[in-house]
Amino acid sequence: MNRLLPLLVGAIGVLLLATLMLVILPAWQMRTAQPPEQLPPYTGQQLLGRQQYVANGCVYCHSQQPRSTGQTLFDSASGWGRASTPGDYFYDAPHLLGTMRTGPDLLNIGARMKSRDWHLTHLYQPRSIFDWSIMPSYPYLFEEKDQASPGDVVVRLPAQFQPSGGRVVVARKEVLDLVEYLLSLDRTYPASPEELQKRDRGYDQRPETALAGHAG
């Protein structure tokens, strides 16, 4: 361990091995993956909204990976949707899987909360709906005006959260884009058996076993 060249060669070799096993081979393995037919690519506005999601750090508290019923029924009972498959993230670059659930999973938020106005109220001030919420508010995504202009989207708020003096809160383009992105988060279409095969075996049965048990 006291000869520099073999040491460096060994270290670089380990790093190359890790890169090979963790990056190159998985990418090669997925090279023929096709997106699910029912999954449309993001529109331009949704992509801008996705950038807002990243910029505001939503991924630090919200995951986008519902767990399978093989592992727990909790995610299903919360209405978060079916377990995700690799194809669901086909257009997600970078992926926003997240690791924390300070707040609920959002992969299917567009399937269960389709109200743009609800999202605007909630983003402006989460405590206007959930008084126990610790989610930050995002007032800078909105602006206060003395009165709304034509075409402005006015945010619905309870009286105690309205600005004083009859002013209204109007959504800026950033939050409208963000809400468009949230509404596009819907991966409830059925996953094909090929996609289900790609899921981690740790908790899930192989699709043929799982389905065979319930064949009518």
Binding site: T69, G70, S76, G81, R82, T188, Y189, P190, A191, A210, L211, G213, H214, G216
Partner: peptide, 8 residues
């Protein structure tokens, strides 16, 4: 939605 619930 798709589910693996035991419908029987």
């Amino acid at each position: 939605p798709q589910s693996d619930a035991d419908l029987d």
